[in-house]
Amino acid sequence: MMMNNTLKNLSNITAGTIVEGKWHKNRYVIVKELGYGANGIVYLAQHLNKYVALKLSDNGMSITSEVNVLKSFAKVQGSTLGPSLVDVDDWIRSSGKVSFYAMEYIKGPDFLTFIQQKGAVWIEVLVLQLLSDLHLLHINGWTFGDLKPENLIVTGPPSKIRCIDVGGTTIQGRAIKEFTEFYDRGYWGLGSRKADPGYDLFAVAMIMINTAYPKRFQKTSGGLNQLQMMIRQKPELLKFEQVIIHALQGKYQTAMDMRKAIIDGNHASSQPHTSKTSHVSPQKQRSKPAVHHQRSQVQNQTGQSRQTIVKKKKKRHALETMLIVTTLSFLYFLYIYGQL
């Protein structure tokens, strides 16, 4: 069974053709072709004086799959990432049955075109929007999957990022069904193809790199090294370098974490030295030298900006524990020595 046959008997649908659903009896008038993919063709159509996008395929199961995804998006309260579903049906033609679904028509330039037209200053805003939408999806147990700039449309004004293809959306914990190599962490050797939030965040990082390399690039040496090299060659990416690298390494647990990192302006490379936050550990009573050390550090922190505090929190905990243990052991040995 050749896969290429799928589109052959669908490509001769001309403007003015009427598509009528067998089950729900809705009628759609074809206006023009919008695009095509491996599973079907998308047309602009009119229904009751409104525009909709109609996806047709003679592979009924792929239509059903995508409809399932759109339905679950609809269950995610407040989600505006994917198009809203309008209708699902079958169209009986003389040449056979064609399954289709009608969805909201999302109009606008694709992500990369928008950035080229309006400038790189928009990258940050649109990525933040995308991360908010992804977070909503993630906390509802989904992974977007096949995230790539061709499927991201910027509508508006006001400018809003939307997605027009949901073929790759997968339940978290399962294997990713569809992917595009450049945005896939498996291809770069930086993770598995199991669906989790990190998978999407990796794709977002690659999309950010993509803005500086519109034609993408092939894997040569692969891994983090090649990607880091590619980032460093483009000055416009340097301010995002830290965030991108962290996302590529899977260091952000949630989309919100990555969002926060971008907002906090965490663009410069981090300093490894320790600093304290206002949260002082309750263990300070145990040994005097430790308390003294902590107190002086607490005094230090007031002068420091919020961004370094947020970053150092994790390192501080480990250091604190080590400090307390060392001091206690020292005191204990002193005591033992004194007893001898």
Binding site: W23, G60, M61, T64, V67, N68, K71, V88, D90, S99
Partner: peptide, 22 residues
């Protein structure tokens, strides 16, 4: 077959197929 079911039912069956595939 699945194809003969109404679209809503087809969706439910597809979920079963997806889960099996996993």
């Amino acid at each position: 077959t699945m194809e003969d079911l109404p679209p809503e039912k087809r969706g439910e069956v597809m979920e079963v197929v997806d889960e099996l595939g996993e």
